[in-house]
């Protein structure tokens, strides 16, 4: 199964991304877009699976990196 994931950043600080993943995202996962790091805070099934694809939405929040 390929997971087509719509990542959306909650405060709009990043445009989000659409990426095919080998596993579904989970709450607490950390993901990096273009050098910025985000944490997944919500995951929902966006559409019913079709053929070899599942369709997932993940809401993300920016992580303030220290140091």
């Amino acid at each position: 199964m390929i997971y087509k994931v719509s990542y959306v950043v909650v405060d709009g600080s990043h445009p989000g991304a659409i990426i095919n993943e080998d596993r579904p995202p989970s709450v607490g996962d950390r993901i990096r877009f273009n050098g910025e790091q985000f944490e997944v805070v919500e995951v929902i099934d966006l559409l019913p699976p079709r053929e070899n694809f599942a369709y997932v939405h993940a809401t993300c929040e920016p992580i303030q990196e220290s140091g």
Partner: peptide
């Protein structure tokens, strides 16, 4: 204005 980033498979 950035609309979206597209990764592998898109």
């Amino acid at each position: 204005k950035s609309l979206v980033e597209l990764g592998p498979g898109q």
